[in-house]
Amino acid sequence: MDALDLLKEQHDEVNTLFKKFEKLEEGSTAELRELFVMIADRLSAHATIEEQFFYPSIKTDKTEDLIREAVEEHLGVKRIIADLLEMEPSDEQFAAKMKVLMENVEHHVEEEEDEMFKLVRKVLDKDQRFALGVQMKAEFDELMKGEPRNEVPMQTDEAAPV
């Protein structure tokens, strides 16, 4: 799989989970917690494969500043996740922190897909992106092993259990 397609797929997956979280905001604490943990696990694994494989593979003079900024954005997201892991969804600050997390991730994804991906297509050819994607997918899958609910719940109109 092309590395850019993999990252886009993961971005979309987390976005779907964020939307599900927003719909469940009035749901039970256990459901909200479980969904948050799914989001946190995916974001953590995603950041890991970007930092270990993707960013080093695309580093050039043209991408260096974008990569530096992306790593700082990852750090900010990790700090928010760490705070959220220490809280219960019933905490009055939990929803506010989740909103900030969503906004930070959305901003990061926009910059990555709108700016960085265009430069990557100039830096890596299709075969290089495919080989990188295979490597990144294997590491992501390994990181997600043993995590509860390795699949994103299907979107439905009904309130399905998480």
Rank of each mutant, 00 (worst) to 15 (best):
A3K: 03
A3D: 05
L4D: 06
D5H: 11
L7M: 14
L7T: 12
K8N: 13
Q10G: 00
H11E: 06
V14R: 02
L17T: 03
F18S: 01
K19L: 15
K20F: 06
E22G: 08
E22M: 08
E22T: 05
L24F: 02
L24M: 09
E25P: 03
E25V: 03
E26K: 02
S28R: 05
S28F: 09
S28L: 05
T29W: 01
A30N: 08
L32R: 15
L32Y: 07
F36L: 06
V37E: 14
I39F: 02
I39M: 07
A40M: 07
A40T: 03
L43E: 10
S44A: 09
H46P: 09
H46G: 12
T48D: 13
I49R: 00
E50M: 04
E50V: 02
Q52T: 11
P56F: 09
I58W: 04
K59L: 14
D61E: 15
D61Q: 10
K62D: 15
D65S: 13
L66G: 07
I67D: 07
R68S: 14
R68N: 15
V77M: 12
I80G: 02
L84A: 05
L85T: 08
P89F: 13
S90T: 14
D91E: 15
D91Q: 06
Q93I: 01
Q93W: 10
M98L: 13
M98F: 15
M98R: 12
M98A: 08
M98K: 06
V105N: 08
V109D: 12
E110K: 06
E112T: 06
E115M: 01
E115A: 04
K118M: 04
K118W: 01
L119Q: 03
V120Y: 04
L124P: 11
L124V: 01
F130E: 14
A131S: 12
A131W: 06
A131G: 00
M136H: 11
E142K: 13
E142H: 15
E142N: 11
L143W: 05
L143E: 02
M144C: 01
M144P: 04
G146H: 14
G146T: 03
E147K: 09
R149H: 14
N150L: 10
P153L: 01
P153S: 07
Q155V: 05
D157R: 09
E158C: 10
A159P: 04
A159N: 12
P161A: 02
V162Q: 08
